[in-house]
């Protein structure tokens, strides 16, 4: 099954760019105790990710309707977000006010959510042929 589509790769590139900007902004604002800006940044980051997810997800589905109930995009988001967080920590770029353990907890709780999503994904795959829903195959 083709998991890594052109639109998913484009989404991942945009997500990494947005993630790096967010990480930089977050550490910068926290370092300078600009807490209201952290909220603004987080809101923009949410809207940005929602936007690129919507745009590339829709294009992906129009191009090839893989019935994955959004799992591939969710998994990519999880993976890249946590890699960026780890890289940020590894290079010592976290603000002194950032608690590294929070990153770990986010990864654990989010990972549990992702695991539940994966179970539903596996169940959904039973009604597909090579990832395409049997209902959509000859519509």
């Amino acid at each position: 099954m083709k998991h890594l589509t052109k639109n998913l790769i484009s989404f991942a590139i945009f997500f990494v760019i947005g993630g790096l900007i967010f990480r930089y902004g977050l550490s910068h604002f926290l370092e300078n105790r600009m807490l209201s800006m952290v909220w603004v940044l987080a809101t923009i980051y949410f809207l940005y990710n929602f936007g690129i997810g919507w745009y590339f997800g829709k294009r992906d589905s129009e191009s090839l309707p893989l019935f994955d109930i959004g799992f591939r995009f969710h998994f990519t988001t999880f993976l890249l977000f946590n890699i960026i967080s780890e890289v940020w920590h590894y290079f010592g770029l976290l603000s002194v006010y950032e608690n590294y353990q929070t990153n770990r907890l986010i990864a654990i709780y989010w990972g549990i959510g992702l695991l539940i999503h994966f179970v539903f994904y596996v169940i959904a795959q039973k009604n597909t042929i090579k990832g395409i829903s049997k209902d959509d195959m000859f519509d």
């Binding site: 083709k2 129009e62 191009s63 090839l64 309707p65 042929i129 090579k130 990832g131 395409i132 195959m137």
Partner: peptide
């Protein structure tokens, strides 16, 4: 095109 992509995907 959409149909052909699906058919190509399943071989």
């Amino acid at each position: 095109y959409r149909n052909l992509r699906k058919f190509q995907h399943v071989g």
